[in-house]
Design a binder for these strands. Structure first.
Lengths: 171, 171
DNA sequence: TCTAATAGTTTCATAAGCTAAGTATATTCG
DNA sequence: CGAATATACTTAGCTTATGAAACTATTAGA
């Protein structure tokens, strides 16, 4: 599929493109954060919400995964998860093949809470896009694809956990 | 300027586009945050760094501006700025036309610190883009433009401060 | 087995965050 | 003008988040 009119585009250099991304992405992020803030349940702090969302994306993740991908240290991750476990939103088991390794999963309640809040984020962004031309929307949509393709790799842990969670035991 | 081959594009709906953005933007943001974390001086916490960067973008900003745009409450902003003032990175004066209003500016040292760290962020993102085709780079660059256009409005304070900072006095 | 490495937890101190209450300055309106 | 209200920020008091360092338990290596 031919997507762009190659005759008329003047491609950006990698550096200029990075520059632009660094400036633009935080603007969107601010809106997203604001929506999260306004839509998460009051008993969930923002850091806790982030952990919850991560566990949703990566069921079975370990504490190290959480720490690494959210950008916090292990002790902090451990304590945040403590809170989520006490609230009955996350299940913390330990892998049977490596009993040091924590295996985190959402409880049914955790999924429900996350979905309810998560659904509210997208409309906030959508409102910002309401006035855009089809062409601009297309550019944004395509850019998101490119980003997914290039940046999603960061989300794969080096030491993958077993796909099934059947070989775990509660603490 | 004709940018896209209109004959071949199938535009996304606003909702789908928002969906994609919500998924893609955090991926880039993670890389940016990581770069900041790794490149900021150790004596600057991440929240402090954010405040410093904001004051850089908006010299003469008030505490309310900081609070609103970073997404924290006024007391928190006040204390973060306290820390930056103690470190001699930010100057806190008060407007003479409205002596309640704080006027924040970077010190020379603040500018230096910020530039040194800031310069290191872009290359991290650039590395991620190294393998992209000119076409993909173009899409990203254009998308950033669109985002700037739509989302930057959030960054303009309703009550602009006086352009010159000459009519301020130290506390 | 004895040593090292890994995954988490605990402890302790500090920073960040909020709400509520307080201070000082501006504005509004009778 | 002068009292009431609003604004901009600060302070106080508390909870949560955060990281460094030390500790426990498990696994891997020599």
């Amino acid at each position: 599929m031919k997507l762009l009119d190659n005759a008329s585009i003047k491609p950006f250099s990698v550096d200029e493109c990075a520059d632009r991304l660094v400036n633009a992405v935080p603007l969107v992020m601010k809106v997203i954060r604001k929506e999260i803030r306004n839509n998460r349940p009051s008993y969930l702090s923002l850091p806790q919400f982030r952990v919850l969302a991560f566990v949703h994306r990566r069921e079975g993740a370990s504490l190290s995964d959480v720490a690494e991908h959210i950008g916090i240290t292990l002790p902090t991750a451990s304590k945040l998860v403590d809170g989520l476990v006490k609230k009955d939103l996350v299940l913390r088991k330990y892998s049977t093949c490596d009993r040091r390794r924590a295996v985190l999963n959402l409880t049914a309640q955790g999924s429900a809470v996350l979905e309810a809040s998560g659904a509210a984020i997208q409309p906030g962004v959508a409102r910002m896009l309401a006035t855009l031309s089809p062409e601009d929307l297309y550019v944004l949509g395509r850019a998101a694809e490119v980003i997914q393709h290039v940046f999603a790799g960061e989300c794969i842990s080096k030491k993958p956990f077993p796909a099934n969670n059947s070989n775990t035991k509660t603490s």
